[in-house]
């Protein structure tokens, strides 16, 4: 069996920026003393004049990016999701969102896979915060291929975009020659008839694994990768829900306000079916190895499988 290639999407973020740097001369990258961790160091090395370290001052970094964008730059601000979306919420809302400026927010170290740093740095609320901002696009890539494609798409799109990356290395699952990334377009990864699993980010891999286990039990699960939480691909969700009649959402995020809520919003209005939301159940994370946390909070294939079995009883 070939080894599964694993890459952290924060690595993909830095690499994609560096790869796009020459093609997009207006691209500038801002950091708040975390260039080593957000992996933008690769860009900094290639384009030192277009990398701006703002020091540990995320709110100011956000405003600087806003100002730069009014002068034609395409700024990416980089920090941990906790600060990029959390500390910064009001700056993003008022200085970027309200004037609909062309600023991209590269938020790394999202969710519990931050690991040992613990709850203070494990942001499980960023998707919820960002999707409430009118005009904000919210993207959660599932692997290296998707993360790099998302960065390019964000550069080409005019307007504010929030992209969520992870710290831990995750399996590459989208390395197919026909893979295509389009903002707002969900991806049907596996067809099924008994239950729909809608997943995002690192949980897409867990959903695929859970679907395999369910298949062994004779349960046919459809798996959809929603890489763009906003605008949500309503059609793909509705079509699948109509077919299976049961929906499970899986995300490395609070079940309040994230993918699960976005899916419920659509289903409640247009095609009500029973929904089970898997994710962080209104709790904080804790210190520990990323893999152990994912297992404890039942976001790995086994945990998702068990919860779906329970839901289908």
């Amino acid at each position: 069996m070939a080894d599964v290639v694993k890459i952290a999407t924060r690595e993909s973020y830095g690499n994609a920026l560096a790869e796009c740097g020459a093609e997009f001369p207006n691209l500038v990258v801002l950091d708040a003393d975390l260039a080593g961790a957000t992996k933008t160091g690769v860009f900094k090395k290639a384009f030192p004049d277009r990398h701006i370290d703002c020091g540990i001052a995320e709110c100011n970094m956000t405003g600087i990016a806003a100002g730069l964008s009014t002068c034609g730059k395409i700024p990416f601000i980089s920090s941990f999701a906790m600060f990029a979306a959390g500390r910064n919420y009001e700056q993003v809302r008022n200085s970027i969102g309200y004037p609909h400026l062309n600023v991209k927010i590269g938020a790394t170290h999202a969710g519990i896979t931050v690991g040992e740093d613990g709850a203070t740095h494990q942001c499980n609320e960023d998707i919820a915060l960002m999707r409430t901002i009118p005009g904000m696009t919210v993207i959660v890539p599932s692997d290296d291929v998707e993360a790099k494609a998302a960065v390019r798409a964000a550069i080409e799109y005019v307007g504010p975009v929030y992209i969520r990356f992870g710290r831990a290395a995750v399996p590459v699952i989208n390395d197919q020659p026909d893979y295509k990334f389009e903002i707002g377009k969900g991806v049907l990864l596996k067809e099924g008839t008994d239950v729909t699993i809608v997943a995002t980010g690192i949980c897409v891999d867990s959903a695929l694994k859970a679907a395999e286990m369910l298949a062994a039990d004779g349960i046919s699960a459809e798996v959809i990768n929603i890489h763009t939480i906003k605008p949500l691909d309503e059609e793909i969700v509705l079509n699948s829900a109509k077919k299976t009649g049961k929906v499970v959402t899986v995300e490395e995020h609070s079940v309040i306000g994230g993918l699960g809520s976005a899916v419920c919003d659509v289903l409640a209005a247009k095609n009500p079916v029973p929904v089970k939301k898997l994710g962080m159940q209104d709790i904080y994370g804790e210190s520990g190895p990323a893999a152990a946390l994912v297992e404890k909070y039942k976001l790995d294939g086994k945990g998702v499988y068990a919860d779906i079995k329970d839901f289908l009883k």
């Binding site: 709110c59 806003a66 100002g67 730069l68 002068c71 008022n94």
Partner: peptide, 25 residues
């Protein structure tokens, strides 16, 4: 109006970003 503002403390950062853009270019 060159920048939306009103939430105090934020406008100066945007102005700094504009000044930086001039320097970069």
């Amino acid at each position: 109006v060159d920048m939306s503002s009103g939430s105090l403390g934020q406008g100066i950062s945007a102005a700094v970003g504009m000044a930086l853009a001039a320097k970069l270019d």
